[in-house]
Amino acid sequence: MRITQGTFSYLPDLTDDEITAQIQYAIDQNWAVAVEYTDDPHPRNVLWEMWGLPMFEISDASAGLHEVAACRAANPDHYIKVSAYDATLGRQTTALSFLVGRPAVEPGFRLDRQEMSDRRISYSLHPYATEQPRDLRSAANGHRGS
C-alpha cells in the first residue's frame, strides 16, 4: 500500500521538475531544506535518518535536487523525504515536508490488538517493513545490504 505521509502524498509521485519547484519555493521563503530517509514507515516514526545537515546556504533548488539524487543512489530502497523548516519567530516549525522516494515494494501495516484489563483493547500499528532486523532488511527485500 502506498503510504500517505506528508504533503502531496495523495497526489501521484512528484517528478524531478516538480520537486525542484517545491524546493525553490521553500528557498524563496527562507526555509531551511533538509533531506531525510528511513525504511520504517510507521506513522509515529518522526525521527528519520538525516542525509547531511539542513542546507541553510543554498540559493538554487538544483543543489537540493543534487542531494536528493545522492540520497536516492545511496539508499535505493528507503523512503526519502524533503522537509523545509521555517525558523521565523511565531512559527518555528516544519513548513513543508513531502516524500520524494519510496521503496519498490511497500508492504504496509498490520493492526495489532492487545487485550488490556477489563477486556479493553489497545491498538497499535506494526509495519511489515520492520519485521527483519535492520541489517537484514535490504537482504530480505532482495537487495544488497545497506
Partner: peptide, 19 residues
C-alpha cells in the same frame, strides 16, 4: 507571523520560479 518579508508569491516570484 514574524518579521515582515517581501512577497514571495505573485507574478514576480512565480516568474523567477518558472519551471
Amino acid at each position: 507571523p514574524g518579521p515582515g518579508r517581501a512577497a514571495v508569491t505573485g507574478p514576480e516570484a512565480s516568474q523567477a520560479r518558472a519551471v
